[in-house]
């Protein structure tokens, strides 16, 4: 990295503090020293003018992205107009960033070569966060399903006076006979038990 690139003033706008922290860490590890976060979307424009960044990174689920569009306009409020990081020569990069769910804005005149490592880091951290999030969601839903199945087994064991293994076999058989998922059968049993008392 060119030593002067370490001083690029980077602002991360992200309503998810966790993802912002992951990205900030990545950028610092890569040697960028001036990284700051904005997570409060009220008066975003004012905060950005005060921060006067060279590079702005913003997640695409953020409705406040449209606020940044205003900064393209030349006006007294904007000392250094911002441009979107879009360039026909870099369409694969744009594609990758939209797929990852992030967009980048840079100060007009800043060379696209200098921002490239920043954007690459951002895309990889966003993708890593999405993977983490997905794994977390899957773990959460697996845990929730486990709980429902355990309750359904408990209901069967009590009502039908059977052991745990047998209760599970009953659930599985019912699921196969009805061409339904085991978890769906378990949910029906729990719902029915709740209703019938």
């Amino acid at each position: 990295m060119d030593p002067k690139d370490k001083d690029l003033n980077i602002v991360v706008v992200d309503a998810s503090p966790l993802r912002a922290a992951i990205l900030e860490e990545g950028l610092r590890d890569a040697g960028f020293t001036r990284v700051s976060l904005i997570s409060d979307m009220q008066a975003l424009a004012r905060q950005l003018y005060a921060a006067d960044p060279d590079v702005i990174l913003i997640d695409l689920e953020n409705p406040s992205r449209d606020v940044l569009e205003q900064m393209f306009q030349v006006s007294r409020a904007v000392r250094r107009p911002i441009a979107m990081f879009v360039d026909r020569s870099d369409s694969s990069m744009i594609q990758a960033s939209v797929d990852a769910g992030v967009s980048a804005y840079i100060v007009d005149g800043l060379s696209r070569k200098r921002i490239r490592p920043i954007l690459e880091m951002t895309i990889s951290r966003f993708n890593a966060f999405a993977t983490l999030q997905r794994e977390l969601d899957e773990a959460k839903s697996a845990l929730a399903e486990r709980k429902v199945i355990d309750r359904a087994k408990g209901i069967l064991m009590k009502r039908r006076q059977v052991g745990e293994d047998e209760a599970y076999a009953m659930l599985r058989q019912a699921a196969m006979n009805q061409n339904r998922k085991l978890i769906d059968v378990a949910r029906s049993i729990v719902t029915a038990a709740d209703l019938l008392g």
Partner: peptide
């Protein structure tokens, strides 16, 4: 979607 900028970019990219 949540922003007009997203709409613009996704149409441009063919998403």
């Amino acid at each position: 979607d949540v922003s007009w900028a997203n709409i613009r970019d996704k149409v441009n990219l063919g998403h």
